[in-house]
Design a protein around this nucleic acid. Sequence first.
DNA 1: GAGTGGTCTAGACCACAGA
DNA 2: CTGTGGTCTAGACCACTCG
Lengths: 265, 265
Amino acid sequence: MSAPNRPTFRRIADEIRAAIDNGTYAPGSKLPTDAELAAQMGVTRTLIGDALQLLTTDGIVTKTRKGTFVSSFTSKINRDANTRYTKSFRESTTADGTKARGAFDAELRARGLTPKTDLQVKRVVPPNHVADLLGIPANEVLVVSRARVMFAVKEDGDEVPVQVATSYLPGDIAFGTVLETPDTGEGGLISRLADLGHRQSRISETIQVRRPSEAEATALNLTEDQRVYEITHSARTATDRVVEVTNHILPVHLWNLTYAWDLEG
Amino acid sequence: MSAPNRPTFRRIADEIRAAIDNGTYAPGSKLPTDAELAAQMGVTRTLIGDALQLLTTDGIVTKTRKGTFVSSFTSKINRDANTRYTKSFRESTTADGTKARGAFDAELRARGLTPKTDLQVKRVVPPNHVADLLGIPANEVLVVSRARVMFAVKEDGDEVPVQVATSYLPGDIAFGTVLETPDTGEGGLISRLADLGHRQSRISETIQVRRPSEAEATALNLTEDQRVYEITHSARTATDRVVEVTNHILPVHLWNLTYAWDLEG
DNA sequence: GAGTGGTCTAGACCACAGA
DNA sequence: CTGTGGTCTAGACCACTCG
């Protein structure tokens, strides 16, 4: 009623969305082929494709060469920017008695998922905006880059990529230290930076939403029409030096973000 | 090179986007009609429509019954969650010597735009999640609702809607006070709440990205395929009472968000 | 009434994954 | 090889806006 002349392809999308919500199509199951749906609904295959593309963009279904499948990820993961950087959360003990290895680890375990991270440590010349934040000349100085692709492993063993993040650490701090090794141990990067005498005291993050780059789309299994948060995170010490810049890329349909802070007078 | 088999409609979108970026089509100007572009490029009108829809979703062009127009808004507005709630920013003096009326006001003037706000003050039963945050029973208690639609007025007098925001204030605090009047004066809502003995001390915000509701799409001049940030803002006093909940809706293509906070040990 | 974009069909060809 | 979704055309009808 609210939309009297709602186009057919949107009505079809609504219909299928409702069918997924009410359990007619279970998470992970295969939908009928476009051609079958077209026959059922008495429309062209083109229309079904348009309708399903809307659901694909929302992350509700995934289209492959083998058919259309209902996404198995339903609820969103919460990224709480404040607790995630506290020592207690980063080093929190998980259900199986092991200690969490950094913020992302604790975050996923809190949701009953098992985290898995692919890491590549390199020395690189950072992107300009990162060099800028680190206070070093552009296109010149090498820094340590810790590029991660993070997965949520479900109970059935399926690995879903949920985030890519790249941390940049100044060379004079990180070269030749544990910060260039794969496992940063209990409490993660932030704890190790503190060990090295660079305890972080103030964080700032800027957020934008955009289409994924080609590389991001591939890594996160996204289409060009989906959207990601890009969070540029920078941490400075009490002496006001930026000792870490991290670029987080998160599909918007998988995450909520939370922030909290005190007001001064 | 990077995408060998890039579909035609995406290539066309890229082409037009580039033409807009390099000034071939100026901000605010009218593009050729779909039919003309189709003829120029030797493709069907359908394809041009698909291409332009990509740009519409990104907020780069606007389609009307009168033709396709290049958006006049280029850069994004920055919403700095921290400075925006400081007293000095909210009450900052603008170029013309007048005092800013709250956070949004100061935000836009910093960008050379003139803010304009349509306000409707009512007593309403708040949405469930708001009642929850305010610590009152759902579907029952009246609170003060201050619903705003905010515009950026350009130099040529054009008014672009950039945000809708609705603040909810507990009745026992707000009924019969200045909080039910249209103009909350210097420093805005927060200053008046402080005057009434409810100085805010801690803020938390949660962010998600979603399609706009029908009402939001109408108010903000969006299509169903564009995306908005929904920011749920709540403020509590030193005595830990939530005295304000505000729901902010911002088109993602118009805004960047910024947060900053201190780490404890 | 003329011109605009929005929608939809019917049918075609394609690339790609899997048996 | 077959079946899948992805793309594209040609052409049609529509609703809306404006002169």
